[in-house]
Amino acid sequence: MKAYVIQNGTYQLVDIPEQQPKGRQVLVQLKTAGLNHRDLNIKDRVGNKAERFVLGSDGAGVIEKAGDEASRFEIGEEVIINPGLNWYDNTEAPPEDFEIVGVPFDGTFAKKILISEDFVERKPTHLSWEEAGVFALSALTGYRALFTQGILKEGETLFIPGVGGGVTSFIIQMAKAVGARVITTSRDSDKLKHAEKLGYDRAILTNEDWKIALADEQIDIVIESIGGATFNRSIDVLKKGGRIVTFGSSTNDEFTFNLRSFFYGQYKLIGSTMGSREELHELMQFIEKHNIKPLLDKGFPLDNIETAFTYLESQKQVGKIYIHM
């Protein structure tokens, strides 16, 4: 079967043998899969290993076969992949054996995926195949950052730099669903216009002076994923005693900030990453209750996945990029 892999330091579309489920494994025939920025960074993690890894962390499809000990699903059921492996309960941090689908375990950029039934969930009925295939990693990351770690409350003001990404798109929708005020940014005014459908309350350009532009705002919480390029600017607009949650760093991982200003401001800095299966179950109930869907950008066939990667790297997208099998 066709699969997009990394091997010997290069991304390749190749034919690989189909595996058969054993024990509590299921074989899912994938309909769609979603791209994430994680996929762009796998090469740095894997290096030039001769071992072959199938890329991709998000996907949706149909149960085709099941091992002799698998019992959660019937053949033919529509499902999504839970990309967070071995993290069952909502704990303060992931367990030591936590991994994400798609390196070091085979991922979703293939016609089929073999995976434990523990990390498969029934497809939300209000999502299309395209929406379901891009849903889990971004939405779960956003849900934990916003509610488990950030503890966003109705009536609070959230500032989230960098509209357009999958996680930020979910965070904006979820924050609005609980009655928060949402402010966002982009380098591109066209992106802001296109993202208005997410329902944010206010937007400013990245190159504006945020302290001046937001001087009339009381920002209770910032959710950061850009890193060194914006972290200090985000603290500058956060109210005294406010909280800043970070779940990623698309720019510099390492930078400096003024510790004295930080502790005098009584700020709270909170880390977050992905989420547990327990939180995924909460999230699925939440999005169905509030009819929340991922914002889609473009789809590409598996045979043209390299073009999809180039488009993802350009950062021109507003919403999720997906692959159809």
Rank of each mutant, 00 (worst) to 15 (best):
S249C: 11
T246W: 09
A215M: 03
H281K: 15
N304H: 12
M284Q: 13
I212Y: 11
I219C: 14
E254K: 12
H281T: 13
E217S: 06
M284H: 03
F286Y: 09
S234K: 05
E313D: 14
A195T: 06
I212M: 13
V222Y: 11
S261W: 13
S250Q: 12
S250I: 14
A195N: 07
N232T: 14
I287V: 07
D220Y: 00
D216K: 15
E217N: 01
E208T: 06
A308I: 08
T251P: 09
D209N: 14
N232V: 12
T206Q: 13
N258G: 03
N258D: 13
D201G: 05
E254H: 13
S249E: 15
L295W: 06
Y264N: 08
S276N: 02
L296H: 13
L295M: 09
F263D: 01
N304E: 10
S249W: 13
F257Q: 00
N252R: 14
Y200Q: 10
I235A: 03
L296R: 07
Y267K: 15
S186E: 05
V222G: 05
A203S: 12
F262P: 05
G248I: 14
N291W: 03
V222E: 05
T310Y: 07
R187D: 01
I204P: 06
L296Y: 13
E196H: 04
N258L: 05
E254M: 09
S250M: 14
D201C: 01
